[in-house]
Design a protein around this nucleic acid. Structure first.
Lengths: 344, 344
DNA sequence: GGATCATTTGTAAACGTTTTCACGATACGA
DNA sequence: TCGTATCGTGAAAACGTTTACAAATGATCC
């Protein structure tokens, strides 16, 4: 590219030193109104855009935050990133650098390394379970937040999230209260995914309170996709006796599960109840609308932005509170067949 | 942050000059195997991570690409960004800086300015219609690609996309061939959105071939959401006579439209046909699965990455070909009520 | 009426790389 | 044996900002 306008040109045009230009642009109140006006005019006139690299090098801050997410292809993370980026830009003048790791620990480490090297003022991570190498890459003084979880034991970083296990347990108890006893779960792949694991643990704990267990074939771990949910549900329906309720690890699985049940001629929720996790737009408007756990994705994104920005500015923000993940009771849960709705 | 390991430390540890360290790391074949080994060892030993800002300043390239998208909250763009980022990283060692503009021209300009200032080696834009200020921000030599459209008249930048109007026209003709004559459209908001406008134009053109028109109330422009699709469909169903087919500007609108029709006790497609645009995962597995236009979002992302990387490397890649946007015939279209399926 | 202090400005030193240039050494062709 | 390429290396000059630091000016206070 042709040589761009530099701060020197602006300084010359305004008849001041480069330092004054820098100050006029970055700390307008430290410069007299008169010079500030001249500088602003010259900058606008010349179409001056500061060189980010030089600025970052000299000031030791880049004005960009990095995020490492499992994927952008799942709306729940995309929603979070959208809110994160918007808040970063609107409230803190910062940009977003994203790396998606595809649920692959090696890719995650690689992505983080690349963000760090590229230079970011902070890092957003999803979940608290990461490779040792990932953790060792992060200097203690690098502003970092963990999202999507809250009670992360042994995690030295602030967590902006909710309690996956508790939310899953609550949903399970709802099913138990409706009278279900034969409850299955189509979970996400738990290996390397602490959120998926916590959801399984929550369901299992709630079932245990009722004297029930959760083992294969009633527990299936599948990749988060509608097709996988469909396939897993089809397998569950072949069981005898078949479950009367199926808890799914996310909305994709649940949506597929509902479709599979209907394909088998079953009515949801009359014949079988299905629950999801995430609360995405489509399943919420499905037929019937999906009963699910609301995940505050956008809220996590916004809070993460504020927290990271504060950390990067050297402030010591209060530890983030646990977020709510309320159950959205909609149309896919009901008492098991042959049982009246419970009195309330 | 505590002072990080710099290239100087590595040079000292390896007993060579900083120039040699730089070369050993960036152009390994320009350095003798012996020294290269010493440098690599020292770098690994010290956990050296190059400072991206310094590197960018000296080399005049940042290794990051910028993208300005309308939103990340719509899966179609998130999917594109996911593929874009993955290809950027895997094939070109580059990172992704995203700005989402929320369909607001002013925010778009602002986002672009921020990306440019931050320093990117190239820019991905969605659609060819942008504010004059947006265009004037982009120096001619800044590698840029337009996605989501192909025949953009008067657009000096390479376009990686498909023909929105032609795809919409094809879908319309499919409906006409099924025997529909009273066809409505729930479109996206066309103002400032050339894709939405092109889709309307395509539908209108195909209808005109059949001697039909498309005006309000048969044409409604709504924000891209399931709820808006639901509301618009409800209004359409109050018409007398009501349309026998509704073409929607995207899958969100279509999904909501289907739900609204069923809520009114109508059967889709027996009583009324509905079509979408995008081909998202959920509607494709709905009940019935949505007939829609497939938008090659991931493919556009990958191609954009390759094209931009080539441009940034000073190559002159061939102009990208037009991409396919095939119609996915699924379960929401059928002949209008009281009319047999057409012979084939 | 000085001394002190804050305010505004300029000078120049970082910031951590890449890259040009020069240099010596080695290989090659005549 | 003597130029002449070729190669590997180091010294040092960018790259375009920010930010101590110092200097100059004017205001404030005994």
């Amino acid at each position: 590219m042709a040589k761009r306008i530099s701060i020197r040109h602006v300084a010359a045009a305004a008849g001041v030193s480069v330092a004054t230009v820098s100050r006029a642009l970055n700390m307008p109140d430290r410069v007299s109104p008169e010079l500030r006006g001249r500088v602003d005019a010259a900058a606008r006139e010349l179409g001056y855009l500061a060189n980010g690299a030089a600025r970052a090098l000299a000031s030791r801050r880049t004005g960009a935050m990095g995020a490492v997410v499992p994927t952008l292809d799942n709306a729940i993370f995309a929603t979070c990133m959208d809110a994160f980026q918007r808040r970063l830009d609107a409230a803190h003048g910062m940009s977003l650098l994203v790396a998606s790791a595809g649920y692959d620990p090696a890719l995650e480490t690689r992505g983080l390394r690349s963000l760090l090297q590229r230079g970011v003022d902070g890092i957003l991570l999803v979940g608290a379970a990461h490779e040792p190498e990932t953790w060792s890459l992060l200097p203690a003084e690098m502003p970092t937040v963990i999202t999507w979880t809250h009670h992360a034991e042994g995690c030295a970083r602030p967590c902006i999230g909710f309690d996956n296990a508790a939310a899953a347990a609550r949903m399970t108890r709802h099913l138990l209260e409706l009278g279900h006893r034969r409850i299955a779960m189509i979970a996400g792949v738990a290996r390397g995914n602490d959120r998926a694991a916590a959801r399984i643990a929550g369901v299992r704990a709630a079932l245990a309170e009722a004297g029930l267990g959760l083992e294969p074939p009633l527990l299936a771990e599948r990749a988060y996709s509608v097709a996988d949910g469909h396939a897993a549900m089809t397998a569950l329906l072949a069981l005898d006796p078949r479950p009367t309720a199926v808890i799914c690890g996310n909305d994709h699985l649940a949506f597929g599960a509902v479709a599979a049940a209907r394909a088998r001629g079953l009515s949801v929720p009359a014949d079988i109840s299905v629950t999801g996790f995430d609360d995405l737009e489509f399943p919420a408007h499905g037929d019937p609308p999906l009963t699910t756990v609301h995940v505050p994705a956008a809220e996590m994104g916004r809070r993460a932005a504020d927290h990271l920005a504060a950390l990067a500015a050297g402030e010591v923000p209060p530890l983030p509170p646990e977020l709510e993940a309320p159950i959205m009771l909609r149309g896919t849960t009901a008492p098991p067949p042959g049982r009246a709705a419970p009195r309330r």
